[in-house]
Amino acid sequence: MAELTKFEEELNKLKTLEKDREKYFSSRQEMEMRLTESRNVKAELDLMDADSKVYKLIGAVLVRQDLEEARSTVEKRLEFIESEIKRVEASIADVVKKSTEQRDKVMNIQKSFQMAQQAAVAAQQQKK
Rank of each mutant, 00 (worst) to 15 (best):
V63H: 14
Q29L: 10
K98T: 05
S112G: 00
L47C: 07
K53G: 11
E32N: 13
A116C: 04
K19N: 12
T100M: 03
F25L: 09
E69C: 01
M107Y: 09
V106G: 06
R77M: 06
M107L: 12
E101M: 08
A119D: 14
I109M: 15
S112A: 11
Q65E: 15
V54C: 09
S38Q: 10
K76C: 01
Q117A: 13
K128L: 06
R77L: 07
K105D: 06
K15F: 07
E82N: 11
S26I: 01
K19F: 10
I85T: 02
T100R: 12
V95A: 05
D20Y: 07
F80R: 14
T5F: 12
F7M: 06
Y24N: 07
K53Y: 08
R103V: 00
K56F: 09
D104Q: 10
Q114G: 00
T5I: 14
K19P: 00
L45A: 08
R64G: 06
K6A: 10
R71W: 02
K97R: 15
K53Q: 12
R77N: 15
K19L: 14
E68H: 09
A50G: 02
Q29P: 00
L11G: 00
E84S: 13
V96H: 06
K6Y: 06
K86C: 02
V121M: 08
V61I: 11
Q29I: 02
Q114T: 07
V88R: 04
D51V: 02
K127H: 10
F7Y: 15
V63P: 00
E75W: 01
T73S: 14
E69A: 15
K97S: 12
V54H: 06
K19I: 12
S72T: 10
E22L: 11
R39I: 01
F7K: 04
K97W: 01
V41D: 07
K111H: 08
E69W: 02
Q126H: 06
L57C: 05
V88T: 14
T5G: 01
D66M: 04
S112L: 10
E32R: 14
K86Y: 03
D51N: 13
Q118Y: 11
R34T: 02
L57N: 11
E37L: 08
M31I: 01
K6M: 04
V61H: 13
Y24H: 12
I109P: 02
D66Q: 07
R39M: 13
K86V: 07
I92Q: 05
K97C: 01
N12S: 15
L45R: 09
F25S: 01
Q126W: 03
K76I: 01
Q114V: 11
M31Y: 10
V54A: 06
R34M: 11
E84W: 01
L11H: 10
Q126E: 12
S91T: 01
E89P: 03
S72K: 14
K127P: 00
K42L: 12
A43D: 11
A119H: 08
Q124E: 12
A90P: 00
A116V: 05
R39E: 13
R87H: 05
V106F: 08
E69S: 13
K111R: 06
D46R: 11
N108H: 10
M48E: 15
V106R: 03
Q29N: 14
R39F: 08
D66K: 09
N40K: 10
E75Y: 07
I85L: 09
